[in-house]
Design a protein around this nucleic acid. Structure first.
Lengths: 178, 178
DNA sequence: CTCGTAACGCACAGATCCTGGCCTTAGGGG
DNA sequence: CCCCTAAGGCCAGGATCTGTGCGTTACGAG
């Protein structure tokens, strides 16, 4: 078979508005009730959208939450690149902390954690890719796994379980360890 | 062997069998589907118990799961103490990994992560206390927070988001960093 | 052994969730 | 400007979940 017709998706106008509305509703509900108490009809009503639209797009609440949680940190944003890997890494970590300092985003991350299973569905996949990118630029000084263990993991751990200690984090100390 | 002091609670025989059956079913389902996909009728059917018994005892799935999953890691167990803080710490970390390598326990932890809110959640509080105990024995070489950041956080992070990399963890490397 | 009652099973009703069919709207290429 | 069709809305039927009276069983005490 030759190439099937392009899967032209519709990204603009109405669809985008609906998606934004749904995302807003999910974020509100997630921070109000927690991720495991959310139902599709609930989201649909608050978003002013028909529930069948949500069922069609995602199938179930879990998939929806995981999908929306993944997109929160724009994957298209540019990573800091001043030439100094160490300070770039620190800036990147600070951005991470700043993002998850917002209770909404922390709650969403917790939702993603609940949905994470034995397989993929990893709401932190982009962060892993970014860590790997830094590792590549370091010229072998450290690996992507090390960035995860020393920088990302402590931050995420605190976001999930100890959010009130986020402001105490010394990013520089984490980075210097590498 | 019934050293019960509770006045009129029925703990033995049939009730105990029902409870054990329910617990088994919950653990199986949690590791198969995750904690947020469990329903009461589902548990009832697998346990061979009527669903009304479950509704009466716990009221809802969330309460039931919290109740059954709470004491999975015995807080009364003794910590390793051979005199060598470093190897004790490594042994403790290995126990942690071993515990959470079981899909059941990992799934329970994810459930706890979802429930963790702005206030302290109890699912990892004991670990914090244990880390602090090690720090006290180290004579100031490292702090409890450092144990959390360098040892606990990477492990828990992988348990939640990257469970298939758990076997790759080099505990000694974590401990040596301190 | 007998008795009181906690705990279980059964059955039923009300609420909620999920799915699919059909139609209408509007994005985007030609 | 026109056509094609992806995507959303509406509705209805079925499945599943939630919660509650009532009768029965059997734990645990006397």
């Amino acid at each position: 078979m030759t190439a099937e017709s392009t899967p032209r998706r519709r990204t603009g106008g109405r669809s985008a508005a609906v998606l934004a509305s749904i995302r807003k509703a999910v974020e509100e509900l997630i921070s109000e009730l927690g991720s495991d108490a959310i139902t599709i009809p609930m989201v649909a009503e608050r978003a002013g959208v028909n529930h069948s639209s949500i069922y069609r797009r995602w199938g179930d609440a879990r998939t929806m939450i995981n999908d929306l949680a993944t997109y929160r940190l724009d994957p298209e944003r540019s990573l800091p690149d001043t030439g100094d890997v160490r300070s770039d890494l620190a800036a990147w970590a600070r951005e991470l902390i700043s993002h998850y300092s917002a209770p909404v985003n922390a709650a969403i991350l917790r939702g993603g954690a609940a949905a994470a299973g034995e397989s993929e569905s990893d709401c932190l996949r982009d962060r892993r890719a970014e860590a790997a990118a830094f590792a590549a630029r370091s010229g072998g000084t450290f690996s992507g796994d090390e960035v995860i263990d020393r920088v990302v993991a402590p931050i995420i751990y605190r976001v999930i379980f100890l959010p009130w200690t986020l402001s105490e984090i010394n990013v520089q100390a984490y980075v210097d360890e590498l």
